[in-house]
Design a protein around this nucleic acid. Structure first.
Lengths: 133, 133
DNA sequence: CTTGACTCGGTACCGTAGTACAAGGTGTAG
DNA sequence: CTACACCTTGTACTACGGTACCGAGTCAAG
């Protein structure tokens, strides 16, 4: 039995918590696991790949719901690569917009910090004043 | 009685929901409001400013907890402008880091989208494949 | 004086992504 | 055989920022 992992081993090797694996199972991101006679969940390489998929997609900013969609695209034979591409492009737009907003925010903070001469009592602090406008 | 606002008027003029105002009161972001004989909350210009402060700080990416800290800095006479500046600089670092991460993510998505030739069945989709690595 | 809009307090619920804990069963090393 | 780590299910709780609903009281216009 090569790489029949218990939930704890899978969790450890994937860098998530045991409860998280079960949480993903509840969300159907992982299918019902095979069971040993004891009732213990058993996992193989397929589940390890799936967990890696989830983690990587999360790192790319996909929510668990979106990851579920991607996983469903993968199993559906009707689904085309273009469907996946479309979702990626959509997500790219989101990510770019968010990055733009953050840059604007950084500029606003920089402006505030510039105008603030430290050491004055806070009732004259230009940062606090500017937040009241 | 100029500008003695009911909670609904305050909420409307500030673009938040009535429940949100009460929620902020629970969190002590707004102090206990003055009351009319009916028990209705009454607000003046000070509370309007405070609510504007909260909204502006939120737009700058501060959490409600951080905003609470900023508000406390404002009332404490010991607090100095430099304390506020320090918090703003800290937040700026955060925001910049987040923006960097998002840009990296956008690049990763762009690379994936580039390598994807649509129309192939999803079992050969390079985006999905790359998420399993 | 009724109707409708507003307010009160309290409580419960939403989504997101987990995390914690309890009471019991299992597996293994010494 | 015992100790201890691990597993099971189920439930409840966390943080975050609200949002919804309830029954009852209040206010203003017609």
């Amino acid at each position: 039995m090569l790489s029949q992992l218990t939930i704890g081993q899978l969790a450890k090797s994937s860098g998530v918590h045991v409860q998280t694996v079960r949480y993903y199972e509840r969300l159907h991101l992982l299918g019902p696991a095979a069971r040993a006679s004891s009732g213990y969940r058993l996992y193989g390489p397929e589940e390890e790949r799936r967990l890696r998929f989830i983690k990587n997609a999360q790192a790319l900013g996909f929510t668990l719901r979106e990851i579920d969609e991607l996983l469903n695209l993968r199993v559906s034979s009707q689904a085309r690569c273009g469907d996946v591409q479309r979702k990626a492009i959509e997500k790219l737009q989101c990510v770019k917009a968010k990055a733009r907003d953050l840059r604007a925010l950084a500029r606003a903070l920089e402006r505030l910090i510039q105008t603030c001469r430290s050491g004055q009592p806070t009732d004259h602090c230009p940062i606090l004043k500017s937040l009241e406008k």
